[in-house]
């Protein structure tokens, strides 16, 4: 047992030490590690509006194969103070015709919610998102119309996706042009 207070030096000094130099949070230690070791596939780039803020950034995915090739999709990442105990909040800022992404940008990806584990990293999420574009999944729909079309008529789905990416109405929803012009 450690005796913490010898009664001789009992007064606590609130002033010593001067200004704040540390107060590192576990989230900060972990995100520094995650970002420093980001190993993005060549279809992905990231931008940090404020390089001092590693907790808020954008991930841009430009698939080079599958239904969504030649599209350009921007995801907003918000990493909270409880990271990595809780997953980051990820929203798709580009309106996309996709069975697992709704028109508000919510993404149905298991590791972003119920299957998140603290050992997963930002990289894991990027790979998950990339996979969503390669293998859209009609069984876990967020956009039910798109999911029904994918399930019943793949050719029509393919047609709708490329039409939406060029900027067009699908049904009564307008999708902005999001072609990767580079």
């Amino acid at each position: 047992m450690i005796k913490l207070f010898s009664l001789k030096q009992q007064k606590k000094d609130g002033e010593s030490g001067g200004q704040q130099k540390s107060t590192r949070s576990a989230a900060q230690l972990r995100i520094t590690k995650d970002i420093n070791e980001l190993n993005l596939p060549r279809t992905c780039t990231t931008t940090f509006p404020d390089p001092n803020d590693l907790l808020n950034f954008k991930m841009i995915i430009c698939p080079d194969e599958g239904y969504y090739r030649s599209g350009r999709f921007i995801f907003n990442f918000k990493v909270g103070p409880n990271y990595p105990h809780e997953p980051p909040k990820v929203k798709c800022e580009t309106k996309v015709y996709h069975p697992n992404i709704d028109l508000e940008g919510n993404v149905c990806l298991n590791i972003l919610r119920e299957d998140w584990k603290p050992v997963l990293t930002i990289n894991s999420i990027v790979y998950g998102l990339q996979y969503l574009f390669l293998e859209p999944n009609a069984e876990d729909p967020l956009n039910k119309e798109a999911a029904d079309v994918l399930q019943n008529n793949r050719r029509l789905f393919e047609h709708n996706v490329s039409k939406a990416m060029r900027g067009a109405y699908i049904g009564n929803v307008y999708f902005d042009r999001c072609l990767n012009t580079n």
């Binding site: 200004q19 704040q20 130099k21 540390s22 107060t23 590192r24 900060q28 520094t32 970002i35 420093n36 070791e37 980001l38 780039t45 990231t46 931008t47 940090f48 390089p51 001092n52 803020d53 590693l54």
Partner: peptide, 23 residues
């Protein structure tokens, strides 16, 4: 390839990180 951050006046500051182009 060290990435370095610190806290200045209670705010996070990224000193240098070579792996992410924009940073």
């Amino acid at each position: 390839n060290p990435g370095l951050t610190t806290t200045l006046n209670g705010k996070n500051k990224t000193l240098y990180m070579s792996t992410v182009k924009s940073i």
